[in-house]
Design a protein around this nucleic acid. Structure first.
Lengths: 200, 200
DNA sequence: CTATCGTGGAGAGTTGGACTATCCGGTGTC
DNA sequence: GACACCGGATAGTCCAACTCTCCACGATAG
C-alpha cells in the first residue's frame, strides 16, 4: 500500500507519518521508484504501537526511537530480554548504583538484585521525592509495597512466558510494562476507596 | 521574607515564583506595601510541593491548580476526603460510567464500587489501550492485578489514617497517590527481574 | 536626602516537543 | 498528456512552562 492508504488504515495523517519516518520511529517502506514506496501490515502495526505508547503511555518520540530499536533486535534468551527491555524504558538509570536503603531492602526481602539494576537507582529517587513531599514512607511500608508488586510481577512474567516467540515476548514486556502501569494506578485508586469504605 | 529570599530558600528563580503567583498555584504573600509582600514558611512548603509534584509526578500547572485548591478546602470526614482527592487527580473521569467488564470485575471481587467512581472509567480505557497494543489481558489477569493493588491500598489507607489532622491526611493521600506511583512502578520492574531469574 | 536596589505586576519573548503545512521535482495513471 | 499523488526537505504552528523586560515605586545605605 502507499502512504495515503497507510494513513487511512491507521487514522494518522500523512504529514504525521512523514514526521515519524523522518524521526526514524517508523521504518521506511520498500521503494518501488524514486517517488513511491510500498508499505505493509508491519507498518500498520508499528504505527498503531507508536500511537498507543505515545497517547496512553506518555512516551516521547526520543524514547519511542530507543524502544523500537530494541524491538527490532531481540536478545537471544528470554531472561536477557527483560533486562534489555528495562534498560530502554523511561525511568531507568543505567549505570547509577542504588542507595543504601534500597540495597538493604532487597537484601531483607531476599531478592537477588544487582546494585546497578536499571531501576534500583530510580527507586531510591522516587522514595526520596515522596518523603521530601511529606509522605511518611518507612522501611516497613516499602517492604509491603514490594511484596504486593512481586505478585504483580508474577502475573507479568507469566504473560511474557506465554508469548509465542521471543519477539512477541519482548513486545509484551515492553508494551505491558508501559501500558499496564496506568491500569495498576487506576486499580490502586479504586481499591483505596474500597478499603476506606470497609474501615469506616 | 521577601520574594528573593523565598527564591534562594527554595532554589526556584524569582521569575518562576512570579509565574506561579500569576497562575494561582502559589498563594499571594501578605502585602506590606504596594511594592512588597511578606512570605512565610507556608510559601516555602508550597513551592517545594509544587516542584516535587511537577518534577517527579509529571503534574501540569493546570492540574496543580486543582490540587492546591482541594488542599485548601479539606472535606470534613476522612472518608469523603479520599473521594475528593481522587476527583482531583489526573486520570480521573468524573461522571463517565465504567464499562461492562470493569463493573463485572468489581462485582466478582465483591468490591462495592459505584459505576461512576472517578477512576472506574479510566480503568476501562487503560485496559482497552493495553489490549489494543497486543498485551493479552484476560479477566483472570485483571483479578490478580486487582488483588495485588488491594494490598497496596491497605498500606495507603493506613498511612492516611495515621495522619495527625484531616488536612495532613488529605495531603498524604494526594501527594502519596501521585508520588508513590513511580515507587510502585520501579518496584514492579525490579520484581519482574527477580521473578524471571527465579524461574530460569 | 538621594542614589541606587529590589519589588510587585503585567506583557512579551523563549524553548522544546510534537506535529502540520507548503513546496518541489518526479512519477503513475487514466 | 493532464493531473493527482508521492517522497523528501524546509518552514511554520501550537502548547506548556517558563523567562525576560519594563515600569513605577518603596526601601534603605551612605
Amino acid at each position: 500500500m502507499r502512504i495515503s492508504e497507510l494513513a487511512t488504515r491507521t487514522g494518522v495523517p500523512v504529514p504525521t507519518l512523514k514526521f515519524y519516518l523522518r524521526e526514524r520511529v517508523l521504518h521506511p517502506g520498500r521503494a518501488t521508484s524514486r517517488t513511491s514506496a510500498e508499505y505493509d501490515e508491519g507498518h500498520v502495526e508499528r504505527v498503531r504501537l507508536l500511537r498507543v505508547l505515545a497517547e496512553h503511555g506518555g512516551i516521547s518520540v526520543a524514547d519511542l526511537r530507543v524502544i523500537v530499536a530494541a524491538l527490532e533486535a531481540p536478545p537471544p534468551s528470554r531472561h536477557e530480554l527483560l533486562g534489555a527491555a528495562h534498560d530502554v524504558l523511561p525511568g531507568a538509570r543505567t549505570g547509577t548504583p542504588a542507595g543504601e536503603e534500597v540495597t538493604g531492602l532487597f537484601a531483607d526481602l531476599g531478592w537477588p538484585v544487582p546494585a546497578d539494576a536499571a531501576f534500583a537507582a530510580g527507586l531510591g529517587e522516587a522514595v526520596d521525592a515522596a518523603r521530601a513531599a511529606g509522605v511518611p514512607i518507612t522501611p516497613t511500608t516499602l517492604r509491603r509495597y514490594a511484596a504486593a508488586m512481586r505478585h504483580v510481577a508474577e502475573v507479568d512474567v507469566g504473560l511474557a512466558l506465554a508469548a509465542a516467540s521471543p519477539a512477541d515476548a519482548l513486545r509484551t514486556v515492553v508494551v505491558g510494562t508501559v501500558l499496564v502501569d496506568p491500569v495498576l494506578a487506576a486499580l490502586r485508586r479504586v481499591a483505596q476507596q474500597v478499603v476506606s469504605t470497609e474501615r469506616a
